[in-house]
């Protein structure tokens, strides 16, 4: 059975196109448009004009932070009740669902008899976390969220990557252990 073959014919370049000159000219027009356009914006910025336009698409990271999407998943935090204590009831659902096994909770009894448990310690190893957000999805108490907007997570050691209960309750705390790197 004959296959249904469609023969595509390539257009031969004309002599003038074969000199590359029209393409070179077109390319130069494009790059020059970017060059002079961006140059004009940068010069305007010096005089305080056209502040809303950006002369580049890059962000100068430590000084200038990229705007994050509303649902972007960043460093974790534990939510608080009105009384200021944690909402976490140490039900272990997040620890159970975590695909990276980065959550370790030790439960203890809560003084209020209406609340069953509370965490004695709550550690998240950010070195293992894959930022999947399952812990947020699974929490029945809305006790854990990943909306701090903090991406500046780095430490000198693996131990330094572990967030403890205090870090989780106070997301404005600087990350992790300030210890100097160990000389090898």
């Amino acid at each position: 059975m004959a296959a249904n073959v469609k023969v595509l014919k390539r257009r031969e370049l004309t002599w003038w196109e074969n000199t590359f000159l029209p393409s070179i000219y077109a390319g130069l027009v494009i790059t020059s448009r970017h060059f002079f356009g961006n140059l004009a914006i940068h010069i305007s910025h010096v005089f305080g004009l056209r502040k809303k336009e950006r002369g580049s698409t890059t962000y100068q990271y430590p000084e200038e932070k990229r705007p994050l999407a509303h649902r972007y998943r960043t460093r974790h935090r534990l939510m608080k009740r009105d009384s200021g204590e944690t909402r976490c009831v140490a039900c272990m659902l997040c620890e159970t669902i975590c695909p990276a096994h980065c959550i370790a909770i030790v439960a203890k009894e809560h003084p209020d008899p209406d609340i069953e448990k509370m965490p004695a310690s709550f550690d998240i190893d950010l070195g293992k976390c894959v930022y999947c957000g399952f812990c947020v999805e699974v929490c029945p108490e809305d006790a854990i969220r990943m909306d701090t907007g903090r991406l500046d997570i780095a430490a000198y050691s693996r131990g330094g990557m572990i967030l403890n209960f205090d870090h989780l309750m106070n997301p404005e705390l600087p990350v992790l252990d300030p210890a100097k790197p160990v000389a090898r």
Binding site: T31, S32, H34, F35, N38, L39, H42, G55, S56, T57, T58, Q60
Partner: peptide, 13 residues
């Protein structure tokens, strides 16, 4: 700097 401006970057600064 010229390549940076052409490619909508800022360049070494």
């Amino acid at each position: 700097k010229q390549s940076a401006l052409m490619q909508d970057r800022i360049g070494a600064n």
